[in-house]
Amino acid sequence: MDPRSEVLLRQAELFQGSVLLAGLPADDLLGRLPDAFGWCWHAGDQAMLEARFAGRSHFGVHAPERGFDSAVVFLPKAKDLTDYLLNAVAARLAGREVYLVGEKRGGIEGAAKQLNPFGKPRKLDSARHCQLWQVTVAQAPAAKPLESLAQTYELPLAEGPLKVISLPGVFSHGRLDRGSALLLEHLDKLPGGHLLDFGCGAGVLGAAVKRRYPDTQVTLLDVDAFAAASSRLTLAANGLEGDVLTGDGIDAAPLGLNAILTNPPFHTGVHTDYQATENLLRKAAKHLKTGGELRLVANSFLKYQPLIEEHLGACSVRAEGQGFRIYSAKRA
């Protein structure tokens, strides 16, 4: 059981009614709170919740339409995403309770101040290295459209400026990260055909490839619904076409790819997690055609080259700089 869920269950009498659990972990919490309903934007967590509690968790970037008597927001990593979630639930809970739960190392104590616009927050519990806060919504705020919280920036590419639109909670929100910047400088000689932007975030790499190689079929894949929504906005803002998918890692990707381009994540919330990338490296060959290329950028300290060579074949370093390396390998 996730420690945040354990803290909620210490106060289980507060959550026996119709309560929305926003950003809930994929544990047994729904089984312990029979009238609760989940709101999830992580495709892997959603798949596990659906398998165990069919029909009891909503997937997407918008709160479910159904009514609820109170809401618990599980503190995400990004402050602006917390603001969006709290606003989305408080807008529908005038005179009722909103709770915020999170780990101390995730910044829950500071994040509790984000409850101030809705009323006077109070701490209900502190246990399992977590805290639980509560506020009674004095006056329901106007719901903020998600798109109004988007950040936009332009990249000066050789083919013309590329407009990037990112939503709260998306990796490198509102700016280009150094790894993707290095990879953008080395998009030459990519195989034609069907390319996958794995862990697409705001869609920077996939959109840049489609701009440079318009005949390439581009698929963008991310585990996070906010990232997928951002990628769709980025493609639309530049008049580009691509298939955007949400799914739990490379297993959700199409087969028969000519190339996989990726700046893969290695964090889940505040925790370090290499599982999605390591799974990609083990299974990339299954998704690539013969001669298909994996091109990956990663922090130099991450020892991915031996794993690539074990599962895909000879791996070369195409470029490196500012603490990052670009690895390239082709399926034999």
Rank of each mutant, 00 (worst) to 15 (best):
W133R: 04
K144C: 07
K163P: 08
E154F: 08
H129I: 01
T152L: 14
A138S: 06
P141R: 03
H129C: 01
P161G: 12
S166T: 13
R128S: 08
W133Y: 10
Q151G: 00
A143W: 00
G160K: 12
L162K: 08
S166W: 09
W133H: 07
C130S: 08
T136R: 15
R128N: 11
K163R: 15
T136Q: 13
V164E: 10
Q134I: 09
Q151F: 00
A150R: 09
E154H: 11
Q134H: 09
Q134T: 10
L149R: 14
G160V: 14
E159K: 12
L155V: 13
Q131T: 06
A150K: 07
K144D: 01
T152V: 15
L157H: 10
E159C: 12
P141E: 00
L162F: 12
A140K: 04
T152W: 08
A143M: 07
A143P: 00
H129T: 01
K144R: 10
T136S: 11
Q131K: 10
L155Q: 09
H129A: 03
V135H: 00
P141W: 02
V135W: 02
P156C: 05
W133D: 05
A142H: 00
P145Y: 01
V137A: 01
Y153A: 08
E159R: 13
A142S: 08
A158Q: 14
E147L: 12
K144W: 03
Q139P: 00
T136I: 13
L132C: 03
A142F: 00
R128P: 00
V164A: 12
A138Y: 00
V135T: 01
A142E: 12
L162R: 10
H129W: 02
K144Q: 11
A143I: 01
R128M: 03
P145V: 01
S166Q: 10
A150C: 04
L149Y: 02
A138R: 10
